[in-house]
Computed example of a mutant assay.
Amino acid sequence: MKTFTVTLLRHGKVNGPAALYGSTDVDVCADINQAIAHHIKQQAIPFETIISSPLRRCWSLASLINPAQPLISEPVISEPVISEPGFQEMHFGQLDGKPFDHIATNSDEWRQLERFWQDPANAHLPEAETLEDFRQRVIACWSQQIATFQGNVLIVTHGGVIRAILAEVLGLDWRNPAWYSGLSISNGSLTQIQVARHDNQIYFTVRQIGSMLN
C-alpha cells in the first residue's frame, strides 16, 4: 500500500475590506506571507510538490514556501510551483470583491447576500458560479490530481475549495448550509488528508482540519 499526505493551506488574510473575494485578485500583505511561510518551513510540513491557485493571494505564498526560493519580500515565481486554475475560489458574480460596507442593508443586493449565506446551494448570486458548478470544478480537479500524485503535496488554496474537498472525502452533504457557516477554515490554517492506494482503490483519512500554525 502506498500512502502520502496532502496538506491544504488556506492563504493569509487579504489586504482589503470585508467582502466576498472569489475571482477578485487581491493581495496579502508581505509580512503575513512571510510569517506563514516561516511557520511552514519551521514545522517541517511534508511535501515534495507545491500546487497553487493562480490568484495572487495563494500564488505569492506558494512561491515563498517553495524550497528553491529564499524568504524574501517579493516572491519569485519559479517552475516547481504548479498553477492549478481548478483550485481557484468560487466566482461570486456581481458581488465578487464588493465591500460589504458599500452595500445598503435594505437593498436587493444585501437581501441576495443574506439568502446566499442561509442557503448557498440554492440561493444563486447574480452572474455568479453556482455552488454546484463550483463543487464539480473543484472535485474534477481534485480527482485528477489525486490520480497522479506520487508523493506528499502542499496545495495553497482557498476556504471554499478546502470545504469542497473535505465534503467529498468525508462523504458529507455539501449542500448543507452548516458546512459553510459552522466549519472554521481560518486564513493561514492547515488541513491534512492522508491518501492511501491499494489494489487500484483510494482511501482517505482526514488528519486535521483548519489547524492554526504556531
Score class of each variant (00 low, 15 high):
residue 2 K to F: 11
residue 3 T to I: 06
residue 6 V to R: 01
residue 7 T to I: 06
residue 8 L to Y: 01
residue 10 R to L: 04
residue 10 R to M: 04
residue 10 R to P: 03
residue 11 H to A: 01
residue 13 K to S: 14
residue 15 N to I: 08
residue 25 D to L: 04
residue 25 D to N: 13
residue 25 D to A: 06
residue 26 V to C: 13
residue 31 D to A: 07
residue 32 I to R: 11
residue 33 N to C: 09
residue 37 A to M: 03
residue 37 A to Q: 02
residue 38 H to V: 10
residue 40 I to P: 10
residue 41 K to I: 12
residue 43 Q to P: 05
residue 43 Q to L: 14
residue 45 I to R: 02
residue 45 I to E: 02
residue 46 P to D: 00
residue 47 F to G: 01
residue 47 F to W: 03
residue 48 E to R: 12
residue 48 E to W: 01
residue 48 E to Y: 01
residue 53 S to K: 06
residue 55 L to G: 04
residue 57 R to M: 11
residue 58 C to T: 15
residue 58 C to K: 11
residue 58 C to H: 10
residue 59 W to D: 10
residue 61 L to P: 02
residue 65 I to H: 05
residue 66 N to R: 05
residue 66 N to W: 12
residue 71 L to C: 07
residue 73 S to P: 09
residue 74 E to S: 05
residue 74 E to T: 07
residue 75 P to T: 09
residue 76 V to T: 15
residue 77 I to E: 12
residue 79 E to H: 03
residue 80 P to A: 05
residue 81 V to K: 00
residue 84 E to F: 05
residue 85 P to G: 05
residue 89 E to K: 14
residue 91 H to P: 08
residue 93 G to W: 01
residue 93 G to I: 05
residue 94 Q to F: 06
residue 94 Q to W: 08
residue 96 D to N: 06
residue 96 D to Q: 06
residue 97 G to I: 15
residue 99 P to V: 13
residue 99 P to I: 14
residue 99 P to Y: 14
residue 102 H to M: 07
residue 105 T to C: 03
residue 107 S to K: 07
residue 107 S to C: 02
residue 108 D to S: 15
residue 109 E to D: 12
residue 110 W to L: 00
residue 110 W to D: 07
residue 112 Q to L: 05
residue 112 Q to M: 02
residue 113 L to F: 07
residue 114 E to W: 03
residue 114 E to A: 11
residue 121 A to R: 02
residue 121 A to L: 00
residue 124 H to R: 04
residue 124 H to I: 08
residue 126 P to R: 14
residue 127 E to C: 11
residue 128 A to W: 04
residue 129 E to H: 09
residue 130 T to A: 01
residue 130 T to V: 01
residue 131 L to V: 01
residue 133 D to I: 03
residue 135 R to L: 10
residue 138 V to G: 15
residue 143 S to F: 00
residue 144 Q to E: 10
residue 145 Q to K: 15
residue 145 Q to Y: 14
residue 147 A to N: 02
residue 147 A to V: 00
residue 147 A to W: 00
residue 150 Q to S: 09
residue 154 L to G: 05
residue 154 L to T: 11
residue 154 L to M: 14
residue 154 L to W: 11
residue 155 I to W: 02
residue 157 T to K: 04
residue 160 G to T: 01
residue 161 V to S: 02
residue 163 R to H: 07
residue 163 R to S: 03
residue 164 A to W: 00
residue 167 A to Y: 07
residue 169 V to D: 05
residue 169 V to G: 06
residue 170 L to R: 06
residue 170 L to A: 06
residue 172 L to Y: 13
residue 173 D to W: 09
residue 177 P to Q: 04
residue 178 A to N: 08
residue 180 Y to W: 08
residue 182 G to H: 12
residue 184 S to I: 14
residue 186 S to T: 11
residue 188 G to K: 03
residue 189 S to A: 15
residue 190 L to V: 07
residue 193 I to R: 13
residue 194 Q to M: 04
residue 195 V to A: 03
residue 196 A to V: 07
residue 198 H to I: 07
residue 200 N to F: 11
residue 201 Q to C: 09
residue 201 Q to E: 11
residue 204 F to K: 10
residue 206 V to Q: 08
residue 209 I to P: 03
residue 211 S to F: 13
residue 213 L to A: 03
residue 214 N to Y: 07
